[in-house]
Design a protein around this nucleic acid. Structure first.
Lengths: 355, 355
DNA sequence: GTGAAAGCGCTAACAC
DNA sequence: GTGTTAGCGCTTTCAC
């Protein structure tokens, strides 16, 4: 009848009740703060609570059907600036609504993503938010559709934040931003400066974010009537090191270009360093642009022209939208706008000497 | 007797049992995978599980006494690069041990920190990790001591990651790194280049991290026999904007210095931009150094001389140490080393012209 | 091997 | 107002 193991302090509501000389329900009522309880009892109970430093077990409350469920977000690596900003938005908004947040880093491993979602389902999370783009393959779509459905089946909901939808009929909430539109505007700006051979330092070929940006790059060219040279499209990942490596490679290969558009600011940063190491001036010899508008972009020399993405807002909206929905609501889709931020890294093509 | 609300799919172990034509205990045994169960039953149960896409409620398991508790980390803002790296280390290591992670951003508000810790206590988290430095006041120490004790009383443990200990007798695990030593080495390096008036762009005056770095700054001066000018110690916070603002201020006031040491790389980045905006060359006119060695430091122009801190390792160790301890273990303290990374932002003083 | 029953810490419906 | 009882979803004796 009494607790099995008397580990110091791990007291239960019954211990508090005993100490206050009342029943457990009374303690529950006092703590709940709603029911009518005589002020004398209330005082006694509160004193016991304080003396024992008691705090009710949230998990027990949860299974008893009270208390707000957690929110889960899974991302590749919290260390990336744009991930971090989305995560921050998610976290803030979740807290505003009284939800705790679970984080999981997949380290880019798809199996981890699956494992985590399963764990979140076991936790009966209010929603699972997949943060950031991913490799888009048929398997991915199938797997994610299943995830969405199994989440819906336990009353939870899948949210895609910064990742495109999966097609109709999948019970998923998606909040993304306009990768293609932003890249289009950015590249149009570069083209408007007279550049015609623009190197694109992309992400992984199948990555949704990279693809969107690449589409914008292509579309801007076509709109301007210039045929993009496929040889100018390089692929790596979204890290600073990839940018550095790709840029060195392009320079060594003698690729001809007068401007480079990097898929992210991180990539641009690495590329910038490689350009400098090669003795090239930006934007004197080569123009450079990034994407994301991370805080650091302003401190690069020259200050980086880039595309601003409302990452934090994205995270906040993901939560707000998810919480407002029933688990089995139909798919819904928000697309946030982006805009280019002109700074000093893109110059007129006339002055450029070529890579 | 049957479930109250028949929300689609939220099936329980009893539903699975019914479908498989066995008792709940049998399902539990099959899923547990330990007990002897006839392979026929096992198959039937597994099929039911699959068909219903059943996954056991982790919270219920938790209160029944099985399942690994979560780990919680609370930090100011996941958006800061060094926070993010510590968080990443925490997350990775926790996952390696099968623990889920709860994150909480305090947004720098002490009350939030308290609230969160209380919530984590309610969650019966295995440990609560406070990530990053904080304002060190008597109230802070008292409050944190109480937190440590109340956590210990529910069998959990407080871990300070990148934050100094609280004095003897407090049941706390602290993993920090040598702020003072790193700053000492860095400033010694700057002094060795002949600089004698070194501007220090610090963090908030009471912030533990800022204090440690400032102590190193001071100590290096004294060791070299040069009396630091208090007027050269400026305080702000750890953001890029603070660095920018402080630097402009220093320039406008006509402060005299030939080098500046920023409390973080972010601050250094802002300062660098301010220096450039003022038409000053780094390190030609003024030398500059940072602290943290964030990935971006290499891409600043000039590449930033800074102090490397093993942030991710710090996070990993925090978890590993905490999990290895009993809740009521005595205080313990790890101090990780740091080292200066010499790049191009610090030059010889002879060539400097003064701010 | 398998089921019934008790218990984990809590809340809520139902008495009195 | 307050105690008793019956759950919540799970695990784990204890019988058979």
């Amino acid at each position: 009848m009494t607790r099995k193991h008397e580990d110091a302090g791990r007291s239960t509501i019954r211990d508090v009740a005993a100490r206050a000389g009342v029943s457990a329900s009374t303690v529950s009522r006092v703590l709940g703060g709603v029911y009518p309880v005589s002020s004398a009892t209330r005082t006694r109970v509160m004193r016991a609570v304080r003396e024992m430093d008691y705090v009710a077990d949230a998990r027990a409350k949860a299974i008893a059907g009270v208390g707000t469920p957690a929110l889960a977000f899974v991302l590749e690596d919290i260390t990336g600036p744009s991930f971090a900003h989305m995560a921050h938005g998610v976290e803030r908004e979740a807290n505003r609504h009284g939800h705790l947040c679970l984080v999981c880093s997949t380290e880019g491993d798809v199996r981890h993503e699956l494992e985590f979602v399963e764990m979140m389902r076991a936790q009966r999370a209010a929603a699972v938010i997949l943060v950031g783009g991913t490799a888009d393959t048929p398997e991915y779509r199938e797997r994610t559709r299943r995830i969405a459905e199994s989440l819906a089946s336990v009353g939870s909901r899948l949210v895609l934040c910064g990742r495109p939808p999966l097609g109709p009929g999948v019970p998923v909430t998606v909040i993304e931003y306009d990768n293609e539109g932003g890249a289009y505007a950015l590249v149009a700006h570069v083209l408007a400066q007279g550049h015609r051979r623009i190197l694109f330092l992309g992400g992984e070929a199948e990555h949704t974010t990279a693809q969107g940006r690449e589409r914008g790059y292509l579309a801007a060219h076509r709109a301007r009537g210039v045929e993009p040279d496929p040889a100018l499209l390089l692929h790596g990942d979204f890290t600073r090191d990839a940018g550095h490596r790709l840029m060195r490679h392009a320079l060594k290969e003698g690729l001809e270009f007068t401007a480079v558009v990097a898929a992210t600011d991180m990539v641009a940063a690495g590329a910038l360093t490689a350009l400098h190491e090669a003795g090239l001036d930006v934007p004197g010899d080569v123009s450079l642009a990034g994407y994301d508008d991370i805080p650091f972009a302003r401190d690069l020399r020259p200050a980086l022209t880039t595309v601003h993405v409302p990452y934090e807002e994205l995270g906040r909206l993901a939560v707000r939208t998810a919480l407002g929905r029933r688990a089995d609501a139909p798919a819904e889709h928000l697309l946030l706008g982006t805009h280019v931020v002109v700074r000093n890294s893109v110059g007129a093509a006339g002055e450029a000497a070529g890579g």
